[in-house]
Design a protein around this nucleic acid. Structure first.
Length: 613
DNA sequence: AGCACGCCGACT
DNA sequence: GTCGGCGTGCTC
């Protein structure tokens, strides 16, 4: 008797295990690892789709086995490496393997399946099983900062690495934050004639295209598989190298359960598949900074020259020199970029009783209340112990309007061609002669030849966001804006002072993030530990969860602003145990919850919450 | 998810 | 007496 072990791509915790089925004689030769099959399940009339993840001679299951009914398609739809990754990520994130299987295998297109079968014979020769010839490398690369097509641009670094690896018959996995990066990477692929060796995996592609590329990625090695974060789980034969662009970007974080992010998934994947991994960014995440500090990643800075950065300490107005520079640039018809903060984003702490914004007495930056309840200035690093002037000592996060500076500039240069880019409209490029571009962080449009002047108008507001990752995120947003600078251009950063200003003057973003990371490490905050959050749909469950989690000795409670969310910090080394324990607690609470809604989960576990503090 | 099994209220 | 409410639990 032959037995096939099946897993289901379902988010239900009850189905999060392997089910065994006997293989009928007629299908004996067709059943192989990763094929999709239809099986009877429970008392359901309809057959359920599952993936074969093992073929054995017997089963450990005590009861009587059912027989699997049919093959969905002759193509294998998931690889062993994908399944192992899904298991590893699920166990790390206290999630369900099935919900990650749904990321591993995109929606099937029968048409693409048929098309694939017709060319199967020529593809099968293509698959090389060569063992990897080199020791895996782990690197963080800082590319050149200027808007240029020179070898220091990140896409050129990526293309060169890709070329090397695929010529050796191995595949490369490239993961970037969003559609803008896909666009620039595809342009680079086109220029270098590698388009035919590349397969795209992005969630917005059509079902047919995704499925076709999915099957090709399973069938071929020596290809470039590239995409946004869903590509982290894409099949790759003979994976030699993983390339990650700008890992700190929010788009690398999955917003739904189990809240995985590209960096952690791909680090796991590189370990599992013994492949090289290279992170590349103008400004790293604090996690990458920590891995550099630990010696896990080697830092390579390939930027040749640094931009000219002027610092204006006053956040009220530009100094006359800066003003004159902008004026001159605009009259010459050259483009100027003004980066303004996102509006409506919590950007300061106000006293609950008198609504006064809490500011640093030295530099006027708004203060952050860390989990130890200390008021901290991210700009000049001073820790403040004073109460609010009114005597109040409780604070609430409020959003301040964007800085008046951009409007002032707009008024000062009425003849300038003003282009606003809010981020909702997908403007990725502007004409070189369009002079004054106002944009929120992360959506700066590219301009041919680069901007002559870039003003970081709300630098102080961005530093003052009352959250843990304010500084590393500000650093990334500045660095990415500055990457659009013309080689002869000038950057003007408004409202910064002290060490931070000095670091920005020499565009030392890695240094800014490192200093922040070390400071957080001393305070016992991430990335030297991890933060767990559990959010409940109702108050009673939140109380039940809290009392159970409080008993776990690996966890240290962290205050949160929302009563239905509990948060804990835990050591990275205990991650595995914490995930198992948390999963158990959550399961028992979900089971006994009196507030279950059909089809809706009661609790949301985030093993790496980067927003709760 | 489905679907059955099981134990309490108002119905021909 | 039984039809049916949906709480609980299982599915290889």
């Amino acid at each position: 008797m032959r037995v096939a072990s099946i897993v289901f791509p379902s988010p239900l915790p009850q189905l999060d295990k392997v089910f065994d089925y006997t293989i009928p004689e007629a299908l004996r030769n067709d059943i192989q690892f990763g094929v999709a099959v239809r099986v009877p399940f429970g008392s359901s009339k309809t057959l359920k789709i599952g993936y074969v993840i093992a073929i054995e001679d017997s089963s450990v299951y005590e009861g009587e086995l059912q027989e699997l009914v049919e093959l969905v398609s002759p193509n294998s739809v998931i690889t062993k490496e994908q399944y192992d990754l899904a298991k590893a990520v699920a166990s790390r994130q206290a999630g369900i393997v099935g919900e990650l299987l749904a990321v591993c295998v995109p929606k099937r297109s029968a048409r693409a399946d048929l098309k694939h079968r017709s060319r199967q014979s020529e593809l099968s020769k293509n698959l090389s099983n060569e063992t990897k010839n080199s020791v895996p490398i782990r690197e963080f690369i800082t590319p050149g900062i200027f808007n240029s097509e020179k070898p220091i641009h990140w896409t050129h670094i990526f293309i060169e690495r890709c070329r090397q690896v695929i010529s050796g018959g191995e595949s490369v996995l490239v993961v970037v934050p969003d559609f803008r990066d896909i666009e620039v990477f595809e342009e680079a692929l086109e220029r270098s004639g590698l388009t035919d060796s590349a397969l795209r995996q992005i969630s917005s592609d059509s079902v047919v295209n995704r499925w076709e590329n999915h099957l090709l990625a399973i069938a071929k090695s020596g290809v470039i598989i590239y995409g946004t974060r869903v590509a982290c789980f894409a099949p790759c034969q003979n994976l030699g190298l993983i390339l990650v662009w700008d890992d700190v970007d929010e788009s690398h974080h999955e917003q739904g359960s189990p809240y995985w992010n590209s960096r952690d998934v791909l680090l796991q994947r590189s370990e599992l598949e013994n492949s090289s991994i290279v992170f590349c960014a103008h400004s790293p995440s604090s996690e990458i900074s920590r891995l550099i500090e630990l010696g896990y990643l080697r830092h390579a800075d390939v930027s040749k020259s640094k931009p000219l950065v002027r610092i204006t300490e006053s956040n009220q107005r530009l100094d006359t020199e800066s003003f004159a520079l902008i004026s001159k640039t605009l009259t010459e018809g050259k483009p100027v970029l003004i980066q303004v903060a996102n509006i409506g984003f919590a950007s300061a702490l106000a006293c609950v009783s008198c609504r006064e914004i809490q500011r640093c007495s030295v530099c006027q930056t708004s203060l952050w209340l860390d989990p130890a309840r200390e008021l901290r200035c991210r700009n000049c690093k001073k820790v403040h112990e004073q109460l609010c002037v009114c005597g109040g000592k409780t604070y609430r996060a409020i959003s301040m309007g964007s800085h008046a500076l951009s409007e002032q500039l707009e008024r000062s240069f009425p003849k300038a061609n003003v282009q606003r880019n809010t981020g909702s409209d997908r403007l990725t490029k502007v004409e070189a002669q369009s002079a004054l571009v106002i944009s929120t962080p992360g959506s700066e449009p590219a301009v041919q030849g680069g901007y002559a002047v870039i003003v970081l108008a709300d630098a102080q507001i961005m530093v003052g966001y009352p959250r843990l990752r304010a500084l590393e995120q500000a650093s990334q947003k500045w660095a990415n804006a500055i990457s659009h600078l013309a080689e002869t251009g000038v950057v003007i950063a408004v409202g910064l002072s002290g060490e931070l200003a000095n670091q920005l003057k020499v565009a030392d973003f890695t240094g800014i993030v490192r200093a922040d990371m070390l400071e957080r490490s001393e305070l016992g905050l991430p990335p030297s530990c991890r933060i767990l959050s559990v959010t409940s749909k109702n108050h009673n469950d939140a109380v039940a969860v809290k009392s159970k989690l409080n008993e776990l000795t690996d966890l240290t409670s962290v205050p949160t602003a929302i009563s239905t969310t509990v948060a804990y910090s835990y050591s990275i080394a205990n991650g595995g145990r914490v995930a198992t324990d948390v999963r158990q607690v959550v399961e028992s609470v979900s089971k006994t919850s009196k507030h279950k809604l059909p089809g809706q989960r009661v609790l949301f576990i985030n093993m790496d919450d980067n927003k709760v503090i």
